[in-house]
Nucleic acid binder design. Structure first.
Lengths: 347, 347
DNA sequence: TTGAAAGCGTTACCAC
DNA sequence: GTGGTAACGCTTTCAA
């Protein structure tokens, strides 16, 4: 047995010739609903026999061209999907996307070619052509700095969903968005319930929407509950400042809300250097998903990534089924994680 | 600004009409090598202007049909790519595949639709049609129980590479194979160098090729170096048997080679229950990649998964470039990991 | 019930 | 240099 030299894949025409029927008959037997034009059993058999003999398989490109669809869902990440760093941001989204794609009978295209080559940011449009077009619709995820691309994509009417919030002026991009704002509200509320009235806020350097949401949720709730916050972070200053830390050590605030685990860890260290402990002296809550580690579990929140991936697939398929559904986003609740870093205020 | 209702994507014909040139001119300007048929700068400009105005983007299906290629690499896994279990078998292969695909400008199709729906085994052929065809060529990975599918795929001349060894009678499937045989040889050799002469072998229940390779490598080297093995495992009996363990505890063997971490852990426990410690009383080496854990690092081997993924992409692209290269596999060395579970024989 | 033929959007060949 | 045109493989309409 030797492999056939991939000469020319047999076409329906070949099958038709062998079976002694017309090409359209072959098409109808193979993919057409045999119901529409009932083919006599005997003809069907002849066709199937020829198919088997020739090893015919449909040419997907031709099908796609004719049908104007693919059953292909695109996944575009603005950074590499599988980063080498173990801190694997996309993985869980992909988990959900794959699960749901499998369940609904779609294949997935990972747009990797669009890379600029050097591992930098990936672009959707490259020399005028848009690879995403290959798929019926796409799920976009990651940090896109170039909003113009998103706007253009949306304007052109290409069906896509964005995972994570991204505002683009003039375009109502359908998004699946973790509800950081409400999660932040709940966290502040919980701190208040534990008797905390003087809070602090530590922000990351990023200015992306997900952070904006957290900040709005925090700030609003502080005001609504009549709490106070005079920390540098709430004014827009990034990171942890020394003079403020000294004030914290002196008891200026009883609870701190931090945007990331990274900053929270750093905060813990610097407080320790001043002889202050979490949560005995200061309570701390983190506004992102935080794994439990050696020193306990941060009070934090859950980002239901798998579920978000699944929702994105469903949302996209709704769009494909009904082009009217071109806009409309989904807000996904982020449950709180009760950890060991928030205590009732002692005073 | 409101999104265009995805009416009909503009085609080259539309562009040609607007620019007042022929359709073939448009094609040449856009994708044809402008060198072949030098287009005057002024014509090019007109075309580009029309492209911009219409928001034209090439139709990939038509291109694929015409060019008989896609620049799409398929990835077919016989099980779900992203398993929910954290023990993520495919992940590192994918890492390498993605890296290399990006570097070489190919996109990736993940064939998820071929699932039987229930999370069971995925099939390549379903009701006569072969989804893999969508991609220029594919990388297959995982445990395929149905060798007939592989044989058919190969016979039909579809370009693919298999990650991991899989023998299919009559088909010379190109494979990227971790060299377990040679790794096993080296491990036995190393045990011999540490003075071990009476060895034992513990095997998994699986009968797949990768295990066969390990067993051959082990058995051959035991014979070649004049060592002895009278363990149940070397005779083909699966797992760890009680009576044999008792013999081990009595000193019947000084070193044991185990096919998996799972079995090695179990072995450690059962030896401990008999008051025997690794490596003080018995040395143990594992024939798979073993993470360091609390009780130290198993003497084991490295499976260079990322590298294997990258090699698979390259191998596949060689096949695409030159259809003569339809056969030919690559053996990838698995370096040894020197751990803490092999000691020099004390007697 | 079956077949002929048009058309999907692209590229490449061959005249002009 | 440029434009017509055939061809890629498929589905579907329209006749027979």
């Amino acid at each position: 047995m030797t492999a056939r030299r991939r000469a020319k894949a047999p076409s329906q025409a070949d099958v038709a010739r062998l079976a002694g029927v017309s090409q359209s008959a072959v098409s109808r037997v193979i993919s057409g609903n045999a119901a529409t034009a009932r083919i006599p059993e005997e003809t069907r058999q002849r066709v199937f026999e020829a198919v088997r003999e020739l090893g015919y398989v449909a040419n997907p490109a031709a099908r796609a061209m004719r049908n104007q669809r693919n059953d292909l869902l695109g996944v575009h990440t603005f950074e590499r999907v599988f980063p080498r760093a173990s801190e694997d941001f996309y993985f869980e989204f992909l988990l959900g996307i794959e699960e749901r794609a499998e369940e609904t009978g779609f294949d997935l295209v990972l747009f990797t070619s669009t890379g600029s080559g050097g591992g930098g940011e990936r672009k959707i449009y490259r020399n005028g052509t848009n690879r995403l077009n290959l798929a019926d619709g796409s799920i976009l995820l990651g940090v896109s700095t170039d909003r113009g691309e998103l706007a253009r994509l949306w304007y052109e009417g290409y069906p896509f969903v964005h995972i994570g919030r991204r505002e683009v002026p003039g375009a109502e991009i359908p998004q699946i968005v973790p509800d950081y704002r409400s999660a932040s509200e709940q966290i502040v509320q919980r701190l208040a319930e534990h008797g905390h009235r003087r809070l602090g806020y530590v922000r990351e350097w990023m200015e992306m929407e997900p952070y904006a949401d957290r900040r709005v949720g925090y700030a609003e709730t502080v005001v609504r509950l009549g709490l106070t916050d005079t920390s540098p972070g709430v004014l827009g200053r990034v990171g942890i400042e020394e003079p403020w830390l000294d004030e914290v050590a002196r008891g200026a605030v009883t609870a701190i809300v931090v945007e990331s685990v990274r900053l929270a860890e750093s905060l813990r260290e610097q407080l320790a250097a001043r002889g202050r402990k979490i949560p005995d002296d200061v309570s701390v809550a983190v506004l992102e998903a935080a794994p439990a580690d050696l020193s306990g579990q941060w009070d934090s929140l859950v980002i239901p990534r798998v579920e978000i991936g699944r929702m994105a697939v469903d949302r996209l398929q709704d769009m494909l089924a009904d082009p009217e559904q071109r806009t409309g986003s989904l807000l996904v609740p982020c449950p709180l994680v009760l950890g060991t870093t928030v205590a009732t205020v002692s005073e």
